[in-house]
Amino acid sequence: MRYYSILLALLLSCGTTSQQQGSQPQTIVDSTSLESLSDLLGAPEQVDSISDTKEEAVKPQLKSDVKLDSSHCSIQTLVYVDQNFEDLSIKDINSFLKTFHLECNNNVEFSEWSNELLFKVLDTYTQTTINLLTTRQEYDLSAILDELENPIHDFLLNQLVEKVEQQNIEEPIANQVIQALNIAASKD
Rank of each mutant, 00 (worst) to 15 (best):
P151D: 11
D69C: 01
T124G: 01
L122R: 00
F119I: 07
S70D: 11
F119N: 03
E109W: 05
E171Q: 13
E170C: 06
N158W: 11
S64Y: 09
V58M: 01
E116A: 15
D48Q: 12
T129P: 05
E171F: 10
F96G: 02
E45V: 06
I144T: 04
K91W: 02
K59R: 09
V121M: 03
F155K: 13
F100P: 05
S111C: 12
D48E: 13
N105K: 12
S71A: 04
N168M: 11
K120L: 15
S95Q: 02
I173W: 01
N94A: 06
V47C: 01
L68T: 01
V58S: 02
L160F: 04
C104H: 04
T128Q: 15
E55G: 13
Y125F: 10
S49G: 08
F100I: 04
E103L: 10
P60Q: 12
V66Q: 03
N168Q: 14
S64P: 03
L88V: 03
K63Q: 11
K54L: 07
S114V: 03
L156A: 10
N131R: 12
E138W: 02
I75K: 00
N115G: 08
I173V: 11
Y125K: 09
E165V: 09
S51V: 13
I173Q: 09
T134V: 15
H153N: 14
D140N: 14
N106S: 15
L78H: 05
I93H: 00
Q137R: 14
E45N: 07
D140Y: 14
T134D: 14
E55L: 10
I173Y: 04
V161Y: 08
N84Q: 10
L141F: 12
K63D: 12
I173C: 10
Q76N: 10
A57V: 04
L78V: 02
E112V: 15
I130K: 04
N115E: 06
W113L: 09
I50F: 00
K163L: 14
F100Q: 02
E112F: 12
D65I: 03
Q46K: 13
K163C: 08
T129Y: 01
V58I: 11
L133S: 05
G42Q: 12
I169H: 02
T53Q: 00
T126R: 06
E138C: 13
Q46V: 09
T124F: 08
V79A: 07
D52I: 07
N105R: 13
N158T: 14
K67V: 10
D65R: 05
I93Q: 00
K67C: 04
H101N: 13
L145T: 15
T53D: 02
N107Y: 12
L41I: 08
E55C: 06
Q61Y: 05
Y125A: 11
E162H: 09
C73D: 13
F100V: 05
V121A: 01
E103G: 14
S49Q: 04
P44Q: 14
N158I: 08
T77S: 07
D48M: 02
S95L: 00
C73Y: 06
L145N: 11
D69W: 01
E86K: 01
D87E: 15
E165T: 13
Q166H: 09
K98R: 11
S142M: 12
T129G: 04
Y125E: 12
E147V: 10
S71T: 07
E116H: 13
N94C: 09
N115A: 11
T128S: 15
V47A: 03
L132I: 14
E56H: 07
